[in-house]
Design a protein around this nucleic acid. Structure first.
Lengths: 337, 337
DNA sequence: CTGAAAGCGCTTACAG
DNA sequence: CTGAAAGCGCTTACAG
């Protein structure tokens, strides 16, 4: 291992001078700069990142914690795409990405605070936002830099990046209404997640605005999985007057809902809308109408906000909302008689 | 920030004693152990991971480099599933995971050697194995610990975990032969990847063993994407005597191939087999026959091998082959007249 | 069983 | 413009 001392010796300067040349800081004479650079090249020197972190009191590393039960991690390309957005930003800004995968919210909190307490990262990105999140409370209490993908409880002064989930619900329902539907059901994800709350709100407000009744029996909750959607659709169809159209708050659920319809030969009888625009939505039969979420941009923007804060570029908390977009495909592309 | 000195002071011992208690090493009297632990708890002390790494000459971090062009990263759940396997192993063994995403093999090499040279990680996991891989040469030259998911050039004494890709090709072809097919085509991935080479070998050997001819025109290469498979199937179908069955070396390609068949209304005329068992294979129409690869286990085992080596549990290089499994669905489930 | 000291490889005021 | 010194927060021979 060649160290900064070896380089200093070879260049005939002090280690501190080498450090300064490498960090591009201060005013070093062109001549010594040249000598140092030559020595660095000749000795094939790379600064030790760990030593640099310890002395510089910054790890240049961002932590990201993904909490997903095993089956769901695989089923849903949301997280890989989010990480691609995060990774792309961090790479360009010379930050590393430390990844921790866990199965439950409780483990997520433990894993995250472990990174924080052990000072392995300069900031963290939180990827699953729920109401009354203890993890957020703890990070705020320690004044540790973080950004949320999703949103925090109302008015909490924290960084977050979100898509407009109320608009997502509204777009879906408006589309269904425009196709002649009046009995519109909802298959929603876990009720404590803010995405569920917001998408449901958009759904309900739009129904109300259109003068359509809110039918509690037409709203069910389930897991963010095919199975969740499959079961949800089963529940809805077993009712005396089932909905003619269903808004699912996630594509995987919508795919499951379509499976339930196919089994009963009801595909062109009940319309289905999902959310995300997973790659598979265009491939299944019938192809799925969905609301496309800018997942890459969510991750990219979250990373940007966090790094900007760490670098002191910005001060107070930033909150960003990114737009979504309806993509109409076969699963809704017909008008109710 | 409370440090080891604060704890030492509170417990009335030296910092070295605190260090020993925390590392569980050496013989420390139960009494002092108790005092130290009490002080740790009272002060809410967490050792600084960076300082520990510097002093201990180990980062307890594994690096993983994912090289995938943007579109492909999303389309293929191979990598998230692999990482879940890696992450699960590392979590249990108290190792961290440093993730670097890049777009090309050249960037992959740069990113990986950057981690290595800067001593950010104790070992690395390589995820895309090609022949004559410069990255492998460089890591070997530096004697840096690594493990390959895939395999290295023949006889290179390096760690790797692979599935039996020749058997994958063989299973697929045997299945197609058993369904009455005699003209069997191949849509393969990039030719420099070892997976492509091995699966093709299994394909060719099985044809030969069955006394069937190898028809070069019935073998095409393409990208590991839907588009690659779509184009490949187009090429095969444009020939005078097209194959009646096609083995695609990847599910995404197989999905594209099925799209090409659907457009021409040839679904039940040409059989298609993929590889991986992506979640979407069961959902599309027709559902896809495929060879299931144990992706989670590949990642999990790779991490295990690497950590075992870092801990000195094992000596020489380890090479592991994991079994795959044919999953028959609609895309082949009929017999040729 | 425990402590004092040196050291891991950097950075950064402080001085000149 | 450059260097000597102290320090980042740990670990680990060395000594007793």
């Amino acid at each position: 291992m060649t160290t900064i001392r070896d380089v200093a010796k070879a260049a005939g300067v002090a280690p501190s001078t080498v450090s300064r040349v490498l960090s591009g800081s201060s005013r070093i004479s062109p001549a010594t700069q040249e000598r140092v650079r030559a020595a660095v090249a000749k000795l094939n020197y790379y600064p030790n990142a760990i030593a640099r972190s310890l002395a510089g009191r910054a790890t240049h590393t961002i932590g990201i914690v993904i909490a997903r039960p095993a089956q769901q991690a695989l089923a849903n390309p949301f997280f890989p795409e989010l990480m691609r957005g995060v990774g792309t930003c961090l790479q360009g800004r010379n930050y590393n990405l430390l990844l921790s995968m866990t199965g439950s919210p409780a483990e997520e909190r433990t894993a995250c605070m472990r990174m924080v307490h052990h000072r392995q990262v300069d900031g963290v990105i939180l990827t699953s936002s729920r109401t009354h999140d203890r993890l957020i409370d703890e990070l705020m209490a320690e004044e540790f830099p973080f950004v949320l993908v999703g949103r925090a409880d109302d008015q909490l002064p924290v960084n977050w990046v979100n898509n407009d989930n109320a608009a997502v619900g509204a777009m879906a329902v408006e589309h269904l209404i425009s196709r002649g539907h009046r009995r519109i059901g909802l298959i929603a994800g876990p009720p404590d997640l803010t995405v569920t709350i917001d998408r449901r709100r958009g759904f309900e407000e739009t129904l109300a605005r259109a003068g359509l009744p809110l039918t509690p029996k037409h709203q069910v909750n389930g897991a963010f999985t095919k199975e969740g959607g499959y079961r949800g659709m089963g529940q809805l169809l077993s009712q005396p007057e089932p909905p003619t159209a269903v808004f699912c708050t996630d594509d995987a659920m919508a795919v499951g809902a379509l499976m339930a319809l196919k089994e009963r030969d009801l595909v062109r009888q009940v319309a289905v809308v999902g959310v995300n625009d997973d790659p598979l939505t265009a491939l299944i039969d019938p192809s799925l109408t969905t609301v496309r979420i800018p997942v890459f941009e969510l991750g990219n923007t979250a990373a940007q906000i966090l790094v900007d804060q760490l670098r002191g570029v910005v001060q107070g908390p930033r909150q960003v909302i990114l737009p979504s977009q309806l993509v109409v495909r076969e699963s809704t592309n017909w008008t109710l008689a």
